[in-house]
């Protein structure tokens, strides 16, 4: 079991190292130009050289991701509760929300500049729009998928509505909620980059776009690498909270081999 945990942690890092080594070797071997594909070592040097500037852009991007993500959570969870437990909302609002997901969100993003200008707001809104659906859907599944038995057990003990929610429905929904949070976090990272592509003079998305325009591939790749890193770190931050909050679910998933 120890051994497996060790492999779980080291395996991906090892794979990444092999990938970078292969990339480096291929670039050197085939004499690929730096504009086409810079060597990983060149990208790392670029990151170190321009660390302060990159950090500023990264901070801006992280702010947008987290703001959009938190807005998604703040809107999706109450909405999921309303859709799950209020029949009229379920019948009227739910179809509208689902239909709204058929609109290509990236295509309407430029509209947001017209409506909200160039500030932080349109970027947060685009991020929100792209990241809010997974958490909504997963929350609804979590709140509505419970078997009748746990509810009956609680009713037989005289549970009121508050305890029924806090002690029965909410814990039951947690694994789904966290699945949604992780998907939403990944989506928020994409949303933030998209928003910076179209409506920004700041952030890593903007930086990558500008560097590409200047054919400065090392800088563009440096930006992309940092974006990936940010996405991964934020995703695993949610995963970490999940492990603490739902030990039964984590243990159960670990014990089922797949």
């Amino acid at each position: 079991m120890r051994k497996r945990q060790f492999l779980d942690a080291v395996g991906p890092l090892l794979a990444l190292a092999v990938l970078f080594a292969g990339w480096e070797a291929a670039v050197v071997l085939f004499g690929v130009s730096e504009i086409m594909l810079p060597k990983p070592s060149r990208i790392f040097v670029e990151i170190l050289d321009r660390a302060p500037m990159l950090a500023l852009h990264a901070a801006s991007t992280v702010t947008i991701i987290l703001s959009g993500f938190m807005m998604s959570v703040a809107v999706a969870i109450p909405l999921a509760l309303a859709i799950s437990f209020i029949p009229i909302v379920r019948r009227v609002v739910y179809p509208i929300v689902v239909f709204s997901q058929l609109i290509p969100k990236i295509a309407i993003a430029p509209l947001f500049i017209i409506w909200f200008g160039f500030g932080v707001l349109p970027k947060v809104l685009i991020t929100f729009l792209i990241s809010f659906f997974p958490i909504l859907i997963q929350a609804i599944v979590g709140f509505t998928s419970i078997r009748p038995e746990p509810i009956r057990v609680a009713r037989s003990m005289g549970a009121g509505a508050f305890d029924m929610f806090l002690r029965i429905r909410l814990p039951h929904a947690l694994p789904n909620l966290f699945a949604g949070l992780k998907m939403s976090m990944a989506a928020a990272a994409i949303g933030a980059i998209v928003s910076e592509f179209i409506a920004s003079s700041r952030g890593l998305g903007y930086l990558v776009l500008v560097a590409n325009g200047e054919m400065n591939s090392p800088l563009a790749f440096a930006g992309m690498m940092l974006l990936s890193l940010i996405g991964i770190v934020l995703y695993f931050a949610v995963e970490l909270i999940q492990r603490v909050a739902t030990p039964w679910d984590i243990a159960q998933r670990r014990s089922t081999p797949n």
Partner: peptide, 9 residues
């Protein structure tokens, strides 16, 4: 209950 109704959490 017939079907075990322990709370899995």
């Amino acid at each position: 209950f017939q079907d075990h109704a322990l709370l899995e959490w």
